[in-house]
Amino acid sequence: MARLHHMGITVSDMASAVEFYRELTGGEVIGPLEKSGPAVEAATGYPGIVITLSFVSFDEGSTVIELAEYRNGSGERIQPDTGRAGVAHPAIVVDDIDATLARLAERGVRALSQPMTATAGPLEGYRYVYVLGPDDVRVELLQEPHRPTVVHPPSTATH
């Protein structure tokens, strides 16, 4: 059985990225931690690299976003447009998409559209919208569809 352990996002400003994802998820922040040395160089393929890592853990610890700031990396920025091959985005489930958008708007974060509702596929019934996070990373916000509560009649079996 496989499961996603975490999603890593390379950032240019650790403090603003940590604040954004902590505010969005209500998660616990672990870090920052500085990593360097032969093992980090071997794992990343970058000789002499120094990385600052922070982790935002939420959903009772089952979901983690790893934020990595490569302090002496190339400094080149990708174009994080989701229409480009190889670009990824986190999709975060929130309780109330409208309240979340209002809270983010107070911080200057803008949505790319009005929230929409998926009409087919595995997200059918979910409300969704993309916002631009730090470094213009697109972050998808999802609100689960309201499902009626199933009421089971009392059992009439005897024991």
Rank of each mutant, 00 (worst) to 15 (best):
112 L>Y: 10
44 T>W: 10
143 Q>G: 07
44 T>E: 08
14 M>L: 15
55 F>T: 02
158 T>L: 12
21 Y>R: 00
11 V>H: 05
145 P>I: 14
50 V>T: 08
142 L>N: 00
20 F>S: 06
32 P>Y: 04
58 F>I: 05
33 L>F: 02
155 S>E: 12
26 G>V: 07
159 H>M: 09
38 P>E: 07
130 Y>L: 15
51 I>A: 07
93 V>G: 00
118 A>I: 08
85 A>T: 10
36 S>E: 04
16 S>I: 05
152 H>M: 14
96 D>G: 14
82 T>G: 00
52 T>I: 09
112 L>M: 13
74 S>W: 00
19 E>T: 15
26 G>P: 09
69 E>C: 02
5 H>Y: 09
135 D>P: 01
156 T>D: 15
119 T>D: 07
45 G>T: 13
85 A>W: 09
3 R>S: 06
116 M>T: 03
107 R>Q: 10
32 P>Q: 05
42 A>H: 15
34 E>R: 02
126 Y>Q: 02
106 E>S: 08
53 L>R: 01
58 F>K: 03
66 E>F: 07
75 G>E: 05
154 P>W: 12
73 G>V: 07
35 K>C: 00
74 S>Y: 01
128 Y>K: 01
24 L>C: 01
80 P>A: 13
115 P>V: 11
134 P>I: 14
13 D>C: 11
96 D>A: 11
146 H>W: 03
32 P>T: 05
98 D>Q: 13
137 V>S: 03
10 T>G: 14
80 P>Q: 08
125 G>F: 13
68 A>S: 01
66 E>A: 04
68 A>H: 00
31 G>T: 09
95 D>L: 15
115 P>D: 08
6 H>C: 03
37 G>I: 08
140 E>L: 09
35 K>E: 02
14 M>H: 05
108 G>L: 14
71 R>F: 00
122 P>F: 11
27 G>N: 02
96 D>N: 15
119 T>H: 06
154 P>C: 10
151 V>R: 11
80 P>G: 10
118 A>P: 00
117 T>M: 14
92 I>P: 01
7 M>I: 13
82 T>K: 05
94 V>Q: 06
134 P>K: 07
47 P>A: 07
124 E>I: 06
82 T>F: 08
70 Y>E: 09
95 D>K: 15
87 V>I: 14
49 I>W: 09
142 L>G: 01
17 A>C: 05
106 E>W: 02
150 V>T: 07
